[in-house]
């Protein structure tokens, strides 16, 4: 059962990484235009970096 001392912190850290990533997406305005983002993937215009 000693493995738990490793596994529990590891699972918490992984979950925390997920949470931080979500916070990042929230801060970078990725939920401002959900309908548009869903449609833009079908566009034939390609660009090197996302438009701001």
């Amino acid at each position: 059962m000693n493995i738990l001392t490793v596994l529990i912190p590891v699972s918490l850290v992984l979950g925390g990484v997920g949470l931080l990533f979500f916070v990042f997406t929230l801060k970078s305005n990725q939920y401002e235009d959900p309908d548009g983002d869903a449609q833009r993937i079908l566009s034939d215009e390609f660009d090197d970096k996302p438009k701001s």
């Binding site: 401002e32 235009d33 309908d35 438009k51």
Partner: peptide, 9 residues
Amino acid sequence: KSARVNLTL
């Protein structure tokens, strides 16, 4: 300079 559409709004 730039134009951006927001489809949701």
